[in-house]
Amino acid sequence: TIDEIIKALEQAVKDNKPIQVGNYTVTSADEAEKLAKKLKKEY
């Protein structure tokens, strides 16, 4: 679900690790936030 994706992003940001979500690779908190907002609009 979208919530699980967002939790995974938040965890990756805390661990400061890049995370791959679908076609996106998120490497920073800023990118994670942008991706989360984008995904919320889509779903």
Rank of each mutant, 00 (worst) to 15 (best):
T1R: 10
T1S: 11
T1M: 10
T1F: 13
I2E: 01
I2S: 03
I2G: 02
I2H: 05
I2Y: 11
I2M: 08
D3W: 15
D3L: 15
D3F: 15
D3C: 15
D3I: 12
E4F: 11
E4D: 12
E4W: 14
I5N: 01
I5V: 08
I5P: 02
I6E: 00
I6H: 01
I6R: 01
I6N: 01
I6L: 12
I6Q: 02
I6W: 04
I6M: 07
K7H: 10
K7R: 13
K7Y: 11
K7L: 10
K7F: 11
K7S: 08
A8P: 00
A8L: 13
A8Y: 07
A8N: 04
A8Q: 10
A8I: 12
L9C: 01
L9V: 03
E10G: 04
Q11A: 09
Q11L: 09
Q11Y: 06
A12C: 12
A12M: 14
V13A: 13
V13W: 11
V13K: 06
K14V: 10
K14I: 13
D15M: 11
D15S: 09
D15A: 10
D15L: 11
N16F: 15
N16Y: 05
N16T: 04
N16Q: 07
K17H: 08
K17G: 04
K17Y: 15
K17A: 06
K17D: 01
K17R: 12
K17V: 12
K17T: 10
P18R: 05
P18C: 14
P18D: 03
I19F: 11
Q20G: 03
Q20T: 14
Q20M: 10
Q20N: 10
V21Q: 01
V21D: 01
V21R: 00
G22Q: 04
G22P: 02
G22R: 03
G22F: 12
N23E: 14
N23K: 11
N23Y: 05
N23M: 11
Y24I: 10
Y24V: 07
Y24T: 04
Y24C: 13
T25G: 05
T25K: 07
T25N: 10
T25I: 14
V26A: 08
V26C: 15
V26L: 06
V26K: 01
V26S: 03
V26G: 03
T27I: 10
T27R: 07
T27K: 09
T27S: 14
S28M: 03
S28I: 03
A29K: 07
A29Y: 04
A29G: 09
D30N: 07
D30A: 14
D30K: 10
D30Q: 12
E31V: 04
E31N: 00
E31T: 02
A32T: 00
A32E: 02
A32N: 00
A32V: 04
E33G: 07
E33R: 14
E33M: 14
K34F: 13
K34C: 15
K34E: 13
L35H: 00
L35I: 05
L35C: 14
A36F: 12
A36I: 15
A36P: 00
K37T: 12
K37G: 05
K37P: 00
K38Y: 15
K38H: 09
L39G: 00
L39T: 00
L39M: 04
L39R: 02
K40Y: 10
K40N: 03
K40W: 13
K41E: 12
K41I: 12
K41R: 13
K41C: 13
E42N: 09
E42I: 15
E42D: 09
E42M: 15
E42C: 15
E42H: 10
Y43L: 12
Y43A: 09
Y43W: 12
Y43Q: 11
Y43I: 10
